[in-house]
Simulated assay, not measured.
Amino acid sequence: MGTEVSKVKQILRGQMRQALAELSDQERAWSDGELIQRFLDHPKLAQAQTVMLYYGVGHEIRTEGLIQTLLDQGKTVCLPKCLPENQMEARAITSLEDLAPDRYAIPAPKDTCPVVEREKLDLILVPGLCFDSRGSRLGQGGGYYDRYLEDYDGVTIGLCREDFFQVNLPREPLDAWVRFVLTEEGQVWPMGTSAK
């Protein structure tokens, strides 16, 4: 059964990537701006001091400006650094100059940036092609975040373009989920989660 779910997810990834690629630059820019503002206005972000963001590339939500904004606010900002065997760690940066392309050509913290233990992260912004009403996510397929978020007890938030929000994504036992999903229209309350 797991193999069947994996196949369905792979097909869905292709469909989501194609649909994202068809968005106009204007649609994408408007959507990015609305989603970033929803995130900046979220009370859980206001309460958080140490946060992990991701650097949006390709058709992902652009987060470069968000990273700079939170640095300017004095928050401790971390980004993921990929490790062997599809593992990752959080490393703190003090400016965008602390980033360099990794093996996937994604800007990531340089080796000189300090590692921040997962338990010290108050909030993690989790990337995804799309999210659903349970807080499930469809990632890129590498499993990095699924492994990293296992047993993580802090706040997790996903940004999802409204047109890509799903009712019920196919899910496997080890798939990570998020506590809050934000769309351009506001906050979606995933079933089975709370505001804690």
Score class of each variant (00 low, 15 high):
Ser31Tyr: 09
Ile11Ala: 12
Asp98Asn: 14
Glu184Met: 09
Phe39Trp: 07
Asp122Ile: 11
Cys160Lys: 00
Lys110Ser: 10
Asp146Glu: 10
Gln49Val: 06
Cys160Phe: 04
Leu66Ile: 09
Ala108Leu: 04
Glu184Trp: 08
Thr94Lys: 11
Asp102Tyr: 07
Gly128Trp: 02
Phe39Lys: 08
Gly14Cys: 07
Phe39Val: 08
Gly2Pro: 05
Met191Asp: 12
Gly192Val: 05
Thr94Ser: 13
Met1Ala: 11
Lys120Tyr: 00
Ser136Thr: 04
Ala108Ile: 07
Leu182Arg: 02
Thr63Gln: 01
Phe180Ala: 11
Gln49Asp: 07
Asp175Phe: 00
Leu35Asn: 10
Glu184Pro: 08
Gly58Glu: 03
Leu79His: 09
Leu20Glu: 02
Val77Pro: 00
Val126Arg: 00
Arg91Ala: 11
Leu99Val: 06
Phe131Glu: 03
Glu97Lys: 09
Asp146Ser: 11
Asn86Met: 12
Leu138Asp: 04
Ile124His: 02
Gly143Gln: 05
Pro170Arg: 05
Glu184Ile: 10
Leu169Asp: 02
Cys113Asn: 12
Val116Lys: 02
Leu123Phe: 10
Ser95Thr: 15
Leu53Cys: 12
Tyr55Cys: 01
Ile11Trp: 03
Asp163Gln: 05
Thr193Leu: 01
Leu66Lys: 06
Val178Leu: 12
Asp122Met: 07
Gln10Cys: 02
Met1Leu: 13
Gln68Met: 06
Gln73Leu: 12
Met1Pro: 10
Tyr54Gln: 06
Leu169Pro: 04
Met88Asn: 12
Leu174Phe: 15
Asp132Pro: 05
Tyr104Pro: 00
Cys78Gly: 08
Gln49Cys: 11
Ser31Asn: 06
Ser31Ala: 15
Gly14Asn: 06
Gly65Cys: 00
Leu20Gly: 13
Val115Gln: 07
Arg179Cys: 09
Glu162Ala: 15
Gly139Asp: 08
